[in-house]
Design a protein around this nucleic acid. Sequence first.
DNA 1: GCAAGGTC
Length: 678
Amino acid sequence: MTGKCRLPDTYTLIVAEKPKAAARIALALGGRRASKCTYNGVPYWILQAENGGIVIGSAAGHLFGIRPLGKGFPIFTYEWAPRFEVEKKSQHIRKFYDTLRMLAGRASAYINACDYDIEGSLIGYMIIEAFGEPRKAYRMKFSSLTEEELVEAYRRVGEIDLRMVEAGRCRHELDWLWGINVSRALMLSLRRATGQWRVLSAGRVQSPTLAAAVERDMQRRLFVPLPLFTLKVQVEIDGKAYSLEYMGGVFETRGEAEKARSALRKAGTLRVVDASSRRMLEQPPPAFNLGDLQMEASRIYGLSPYKTQRIAEQLYLNALISYPRTNSQKLPSTLNYAGILGRLKEINDYGRLIDTLLEETGGKLKPRQGRKDDPAHPAIYPTGRKPGKLGRDEWRIYDLIVRRFMAAFSKPHVYLRETVIFNAAGMRFRLSGLRIVEEGWRRYYYFKKHREKVIPRLRIGDEVKIRKLGISMTYTKPPQAYTKASLVKWMENVGIGTEATRARITEILFERKYLSTGPRGAVESTDLGINVYGFLKEFFPDLVEVDLTRRFEEYMEQIKKGEVSREKVLGEAKSVLTSLIEAFKPRMGEAGVQLGKSLGLIKPVRKCPICGKESSPDNIYGFCQHHSKALRELRKAEAEWMRRAGIRGVRYARMISRMSLAGRWIREVAGYLSSRGT
DNA sequence: GCAAGGTC
Ligand SMILES: [Zn+2]
């Protein structure tokens, strides 16, 4: 270390959460006077201010983690230790750790400048506690990394936020206590019953997510479609055929549909009672937050949310896009939009499009802002830096972000919704057309298809002849399957996990083989998943509820306000866990047998003739519990099928067994019954 | 080996 990289005799060490933030802080406080240095490849900055030296170093997220003290179950003893000692995969942390230790050794004061939330407070404090002196610690508070805000935050640097630190520690420790203990309960149960060891897990975020996925999949597997009838009316206008939509919806029974059809047949013609055209505006979508990006990448390219996230993180590290782990749909007003668009013009694909955008807006660049916000980061936007060679999927994600950014400045998409309403025999029918007036933002972000449909001009009083008239039988539809992306969206909507963890945590459920994906990315539950969910609901019901996160959040708020101590909250959690575990222990083996059976490790006493799993004692065919349930659902729906369509018995069973809309267990049971003629 | 949360 010579010259500009020699540490000043006295200096304040500013600890940032990540190198990119450290760079922004150095730039804001020192401008060109800040010298960038490296130690083991980790950057830090030195600058001389009026009131002494400043050194800016960086963490890389959490440098400390929890490890158990001792063995066994339950386990309530643990300690905080360097991350690279706790997790093998965290070796890259070491060089950040070493650099901060080196920088902290000779500092005379410390400023925690990590993100202003409980995690950031903890990250910075643990470093200062380990390498420095908490008595000389201060806190910088800011919600964005703009120069003005950083300068102001430094000027107003305050006392260290010990309560925030306590809340952060408490959150980690609570998650650890619940997660590790209940995961061990699962694994020990299985081992007690089968002698086998296998990784199983449960946690505050993953388990409610498992519950949501299993519940939805069960509804689908047990779904019996019911018949519905609609009128199919085709008219001829100027020699062209058009299909009309019956505005009364659907008929439940064939009888009602037939009555309507004969009335219509008698009328023979339809009279136009209303013809209108409505101008519709579709506002531009706001710039992406991570969840929206993951949803769109899944919808358009079939990319999993985790893959999308990893790509976005890489684009961010290559300075092509802003910070991606954000919930915000808002672009900062301080951003130089014209500058970014000007640089994006250099990229072939966007040159002409950006010309159009600048012309269209007349240079007035005001983005559409979304509703969702984030305490520390704006929506995702391109930096304008020209990308090198990107892979196919990398380009796709980058392109989505750029186009969505452009679209945010554009005008509404305008179209005409044309509607003609017909009447005959007291029934109403509709013919709808769509004409695009102005492409607007869809010119830039064209991934949502909008099809034009031309319909003839008609006036009130016009009569048209019915050309074809029929009844078609349709069916009620099962609830939509989750995809990985919609499961992540579900987590976002109920407020569990964070941008950084949601996709990763859903992947854990697939890794554990609790869930799998079927056709078109449909999330399906496995037998193991269903049984792990059953286990948790029975012995640790708190853990499958989203509400546990709400309770955690309330505790953290109370700790932040100083209304309750970390020790008190942890003490309560331990006592709740202790009593749940005491109730669970005597039934550990029995619970393990269920898990063992779901994995095929324990032979059933009596086999379900359909799937070979353990028979349910109350079922005359010897079906397992799932197929017994399916049988009950099938019987329940039979009366309804008879009433609506006059179908029952073997014909009913045969029909259902071939319907792809019917749930899998339902089809299997129907197939079994129809092959036996019952 | 088990969680969830930071970031590389
Ligand atoms: Zn079965």
